[in-house]
Design a protein around this nucleic acid. Sequence first.
DNA 1: TCTTACAATACCAAAAAAATACCATTTACC
DNA 2: GGTAAATGGTATTTTTTTGGTATTGTAAGA
Lengths: 254, 254
Amino acid sequence: MTDDFASILSSERLQAGGSGPLYVKLRRTLEEAIRTGSLGHGDALPPERDIAEFATVSRVTVRKAIDELVSDGLLVRRHGSGTFVTKPVSRVEQRLSQLTSFTEDMARRGMTSRSEWLHKGIHTPSPDEMMILGLATDVKVSRLSRLRIADNQPLAIENASVSGEFLPDPFVVTTSLYAELERHQVRPVRAVQRISATNMKEEDARLLGVSVGAAGLSIERISYLGSGRAVEFTRSLYRGDAYDFVAELTIGTP
Amino acid sequence: MTDDFASILSSERLQAGGSGPLYVKLRRTLEEAIRTGSLGHGDALPPERDIAEFATVSRVTVRKAIDELVSDGLLVRRHGSGTFVTKPVSRVEQRLSQLTSFTEDMARRGMTSRSEWLHKGIHTPSPDEMMILGLATDVKVSRLSRLRIADNQPLAIENASVSGEFLPDPFVVTTSLYAELERHQVRPVRAVQRISATNMKEEDARLLGVSVGAAGLSIERISYLGSGRAVEFTRSLYRGDAYDFVAELTIGTP
DNA sequence: TCTTACAATACCAAAAAAATACCATTTACC
DNA sequence: GGTAAATGGTATTTTTTTGGTATTGTAAGA
């Protein structure tokens, strides 16, 4: 039982929860906590047994309270895993200014995350790639494409292009492209990110499970070595209805 | 096992790592060590077996912790060789950006810019505004709405809400909201910006001269005083086909 | 008295977590 | 070059945690 819950479920609060059966008071208390944000979207509730013990009621009573919140759509149960606060719109935030990892970010929201590879291959560079990566005519380019999935919902398509000089064999990449580059002592030190909005084309829409024309957040990133040489070029397309990009800015004093 | 690791993985630290499963605590401990620099980039971790023995957990548990750090790009594995700390891109930080005005922004891009006021007024705050700006019930809010035009093309709709305490009279604002706030010694020092993609509604599409459903870049910004008090809340909608948001990221150890 | 809502107890099943045992690759030393 | 030690990789099993369900008891109201 977390400390947060100690205050949320304090017996005073439960008693003050108005009249009626125990499970109704408990439900109102939980509902209030969700609406006020004491329980954030994606947060896990403590185990039913813990709640029962803390509120000194039986587990069935706790379950009855939770039952109603589940049928109202405020909570979601996962057998063997826990009970979680639902997200009204499944919005995921990425905070650049914080050092939170993707896994932890998702875990904090009670979401599981994984990837599916769509493509790995060696290609003759497109004009775009040649220009951006500054390739000689005879150098090949490695392309890696994958679908990022959160809570079994496709969230984004990631297309990476890397110069063959830095990544001759794209098939060795398993989880992290950057980890693979690191293995060859290739270390980008700077990146430029370009964020724009675009309407989904048919194939992207199909992969992401949205309708054609839906708004998508396109993020293009080019990363550079200390020498100024471009290493990698990634085009990502995020579902506009499921992804927020959050940045914190500080104002310089002139 | 090095002495360094003895302190990094001391069982006290592992216990103090908060609640949750063992592998999560272990992951957090390692992550912390990497972030604080106790483990520099390029350093090798001790063998998994050693870590397991020292932390008195099974090797699989150690591997699970390391797995997540690998997929986040903080660590790199080399079969038969060891596990090493990388200098990953997932640890990018957005360079301290200045809160630039639209005019400056466009000037930097070599474009002429002007605005057309759509609305100025004093209103009873909406629930959104009350929550975000932290307003008392009897305080009014000033709303400013204008169309931003660059190179004679409508580019964005800007809706600003400012607490009446800071801007009692919105009609005095002519060009820059920030300049007007500055006149009253109101100086935001921090802002949080949320960028997302959305499909244009009819009215927005008409004002911006695009078709309904076209992709738009929605940027919400809340700016704060040094005290943490929110000053202003701006919702902007940019034409997705005409505006890019560019951020430069530097990669490095904090 | 009978019905019904409420609450408690005891046990079931699924999922996650952790441990065990064994496999594959790299490195180093001979 | 070959071989053994060291290291990460994987499959399988066991334990623990968590929600799910059936049964029973109790008290209020028809």
